[in-house]
Amino acid sequence: MPISTWSGILDLAASFASSLQAAKARMHDHCSWYPYETLSNLTKLTPVFGASAASFEELAGAGPILDIGAGDGDLSFLLAQAGYAVHALDNPATNFNGMRGLRLLAAELGSNVQILEANLDRDFDLEPYQLVLCLGVLYHLKSPLHLLEAIARSAQYCVLSTRVARQSPEGLRLDPQPLAYLLDDSQLNRDNSNYWIFTPAGLRRLARRAGWSTLHVAYYGDTRTSNPLSLEQHDERAYVLLKNRKALANVELLSGWHDAEQSGWRWTRREFSALATVAAEPGASLQLQVQFFLSGDVIRRLGPITLRCRAEGRPVEQASYPEAGDMVYRAALPALPAEGPILLQFSLDKALPPGELDDRELGIIVQSIDVSPV
């Protein structure tokens, strides 16, 4: 049986790190190893995994875990030692030693980690996974949106870490705008594989546009004046837990929903409700966004439709829709006093009653529901 909790995996990491270093020492004449220590940073993921009601084993699911940007495979081999099936993916062209270290360690440790190769800036396909780890990868990519979209087509959860910045090198305040700083070649650490440094708001926007809902973020380093160029003093990293928004997977559906359509969208009744989790501090300004389709049959038979919402029992803006088609409902939510899921209760002023063609009460077809900090 695999180790079920993240704290249990951290306990294993303390002893496994010695075995890993010994294996590398035995092969020091055969490979130049990745110069940065990986396992010592894993404690920074503790609040990320702790924010989920599920154990690490439940987040990982029954299938393999995918470790993107595996480097020399330290994390992959640790998770395999903890009892999980693991796939380690990297790009030989950008890997520190062309993935030679990963393959040598797999053989030396007798590990069953499956090694995969892919250029993450080009089109590639992934098999289905429940959990994907993507640590320290995004700012090394020309197209980070492309990668997160690819993972969203495959996985239910993604845990990522990346560098972020709250101001420019000259001190211009960038956060809370959803921005990214494009590094010049060799501008950061003389490494031309560094590209995009997002603001915290930019990282959240990137994740949402790629099809993810941000469940939790932990920040480390200079969380006030971080900038894209500082190597130590003003460096900041974000560790993030994402959940796929596909087929409303990022929210807990309560009452008033019909079975999912083939596309993953769902018809609602006149009244419907959901629980949404948001990564924000208590008192933060929040925005609700609902993407939905309004059927022509509904409009022709009933006329304009009005959508109302209550968040934790408090009414928010209502909106009316006189035409059929793809719609977006946006509303500012009242500042909530505590962390945790937000109860959203929706109601339409009218809906199609059960009839000859369909025995269900039909309101709107919802594609996604998101709550995010403004």
Results as ranks from 00 to 15, higher is better:
residue 245 R to I: 02
residue 226 S to P: 02
residue 238 A to Y: 02
residue 256 G to A: 05
residue 245 R to Y: 02
residue 256 G to M: 05
residue 256 G to I: 00
residue 263 S to F: 06
residue 221 G to W: 12
residue 260 A to K: 15
residue 243 K to V: 15
residue 232 E to W: 15
residue 248 L to T: 10
residue 235 D to N: 10
residue 248 L to N: 12
residue 239 Y to K: 07
residue 264 G to V: 08
residue 223 T to N: 07
residue 241 L to N: 04
residue 256 G to K: 07
residue 231 L to Q: 12
residue 250 N to T: 07
residue 265 W to N: 14
residue 231 L to N: 06
residue 264 G to P: 04
residue 234 H to D: 02
residue 218 A to Y: 09
residue 249 A to E: 14
residue 252 E to V: 01
residue 248 L to Y: 05
residue 254 L to C: 11
residue 248 L to H: 07
residue 223 T to D: 03
residue 254 L to T: 11
residue 221 G to A: 05
residue 222 D to A: 13
residue 237 R to N: 05
residue 230 S to Y: 00
residue 246 K to G: 15
residue 249 A to H: 15
residue 226 S to D: 02
residue 256 G to L: 06
residue 252 E to S: 11
residue 256 G to Q: 07
residue 257 W to T: 05
residue 230 S to N: 00
residue 225 T to Y: 14
residue 231 L to G: 02
residue 229 L to M: 05
residue 264 G to K: 14
residue 265 W to Y: 12
residue 234 H to K: 00
residue 227 N to Q: 04
residue 221 G to S: 10
residue 221 G to H: 11
residue 247 A to Y: 12
residue 218 A to G: 15
residue 219 Y to A: 04
residue 229 L to K: 00
residue 243 K to Q: 15
residue 240 V to S: 12
residue 258 H to A: 05
residue 257 W to G: 09
residue 256 G to V: 02
residue 220 Y to E: 09
residue 265 W to F: 10
residue 267 W to C: 01
residue 233 Q to G: 02
residue 253 L to G: 13
residue 258 H to W: 08
residue 228 P to C: 06
residue 225 T to M: 09
residue 251 V to C: 09
residue 250 N to I: 07
residue 232 E to C: 08
residue 231 L to V: 07
residue 230 S to P: 00
residue 259 D to Y: 10
residue 237 R to G: 01
residue 236 E to F: 00
residue 234 H to G: 00
residue 246 K to I: 10
residue 259 D to N: 12
residue 235 D to A: 08
residue 246 K to V: 12
residue 253 L to R: 13
residue 246 K to P: 15
residue 250 N to K: 13
residue 227 N to R: 01
residue 222 D to L: 13
residue 261 E to A: 09
residue 234 H to N: 02
residue 231 L to C: 03
residue 239 Y to R: 08
residue 249 A to R: 14
residue 252 E to K: 13
residue 232 E to V: 13
residue 233 Q to P: 01
residue 221 G to C: 03
residue 230 S to E: 01
residue 225 T to K: 09
residue 236 E to I: 01
residue 224 R to T: 07
residue 259 D to P: 11
residue 230 S to V: 00
residue 250 N to M: 08
residue 262 Q to S: 15
residue 267 W to A: 00
residue 224 R to W: 04
residue 258 H to I: 03
residue 253 L to T: 02
residue 266 R to Y: 03
residue 252 E to C: 04
residue 243 K to L: 05
residue 267 W to Q: 04
residue 224 R to M: 03
